[in-house]
């Protein structure tokens, strides 16, 4: 790795760090209950919940830290935090 002398770094290079390894609980999305409001994506601190083509939402589990904000805020209780198996 060559040091760029001004302690500069390329934008978005944190993507190399997969924070999904942090979590104990993972959010499970139930599209049957989802009203496509987008609140989950709005309030995800990692910005990793994206809208699918069909309008539903899906988290990127490589980065999801399992904080549970999405589940807590979903007005339809369509997201449930589940203890992740080994």
């Amino acid at each position: 790795m060559k040091l760029i002398i001004k302690t500069v770094a390329k934008p978005g290079s944190t993507r190399a760090n997969k924070t999904g390894a942090w979590r104990s609980f993972m959010p499970v999305f139930d599209h049957k209950l989802c009203s496509k409001c987008g609140i989950c994506a709005m309030y995800c601190p990692e910005g990793i919940i994206t809208r699918l083509e069909n309008g539903f939402f899906e988290p990127d589990y490589e980065y999801c830290k399992g904080c549970g904000i999405c589940a807590n805020e979903c007005p339809k209780k369509a997201i449930v935090m589940v203890l992740e198996g080994k």
Binding site: L3, I4, I5, T7, V8, A9, K10, P11
Partner: peptide, 24 residues
């Protein structure tokens, strides 16, 4: 070569931990 420029965004003044500080 590097400047704060929205056409070529870079981050200046980062955190360098013990694995890189000496080389700076």
């Amino acid at each position: 070569e590097f400047a704060l420029d929205t056409k070529n965004p870079m981050s200046f003044g980062m955190l360098a931990d013990p694995s890189t500080y000496t080389e700076f």
